[in-house]
């Protein structure tokens, strides 16, 4: 595309919004065409398409991101909206409160520790470690945590994508191996480990799975936001 035209089109959010919507819809159509493989969620297809489009047009990511903030602003009300399925599934959540309360702090802590331990063993730099720590936390909360730890937000977003995308097939595989068919448990595990990407997948399974995923996602986010920055500074202070 000519520079003058690109400058004109990227001076407003218009181009970023059109590209995002197009990549999202085409990614979803491809996903259906491929008979909905669980190892290749539509968000990965769409993200690859979008990255390809940006590279092809020559639109710098920073400018794209600025325009797309018109869309990402809606993450705020969308996060608030998750309170609705949470309310609708409340009776089923109350039924299971004990396992959830015991499991959550342990599992959410381990989700961060496993990744940090492996990355540390494989020789990741402190900056990379700080960017990976919040990998199971939903984006709006994870960005805040990562900034507190001194990590890099774009790497965190990539870590979120990889984590969410791998969590989906891993949850179905592990559920099969452990012979778990309860949508409530599968949903909770999807939200706890796979944040918003896992939650989107859980809503595909059933509304119950979706509600438990929203619960797992929000509790993991709140819990991690409370302990991780504190623990990080304690460990950093010792070392």
């Amino acid at each position: 595309m000519t520079d003058a035209l690109l400058t004109r089109l990227s001076s407003t959010p218009l181009l970023a919004v059109v590209l995002t919507l197009a990549a999202y819809l085409v990614g979803n159509a491809l996903y259906r065409r491929l008979k909905q493989p669980s190892w290749l969620p539509p968000i990965l297809l769409s993200a690859v398409l979008l990255a390809g489009l940006l590279a092809l047009i020559g639109l710098p990511y920073a400018i794209y991101q600025q325009g797309a903030s018109w869309l990402t602003f809606l993450l705020g009300p969308a996060t608030v909206a998750l309170g609705m399925p949470l309310y609708q599934q409340l009776p089923r959540i109350v039924e299971l409160w004990r396992p959830l309360v015991v499991c959550l702090p342990l599992a959410a802590t381990l989700a961060a520790l496993y990744a940090l331990g492996i990355a540390w063993l494989l020789g990741a730099s402190p900056e990379v470690l700080a960017s990976l720590a919040a990998k199971s936390v939903t984006a709006p909360i994870a960005i805040g945590i990562t900034e507190q730890l001194g990590g890099r937000v774009p790497l965190l977003m990539g870590a979120l994508l990889i984590t969410g995308v791998t969590a989906i097939p891993l949850v179905s595989l592990a559920a099969r191996l452990l012979r778990i068919s309860d949508d409530r448990l599968i949903g909770f595990a999807l939200g706890l480990n796979g944040h918003a990407i896992g939650t989107v997948r859980a809503f595909d399974l059933s509304p119950t799975a979706g509600a438990f995923a929203s619960l797992g996602m929000s509790l993991t986010g709140i819990f991690t936001a409370l302990w991780l920055p504190l623990a990080w500074h304690l460990v950093g202070g010792l070392g």
């Binding site: 993200a47 869309l71 993450l75």
Partner: peptide
């Protein structure tokens, strides 16, 4: 899913 895409693509 669409709303988190712009951030995700940054990687």
């Amino acid at each position: 899913a669409m709303l988190i895409m712009p951030g995700v693509v940054g990687v």
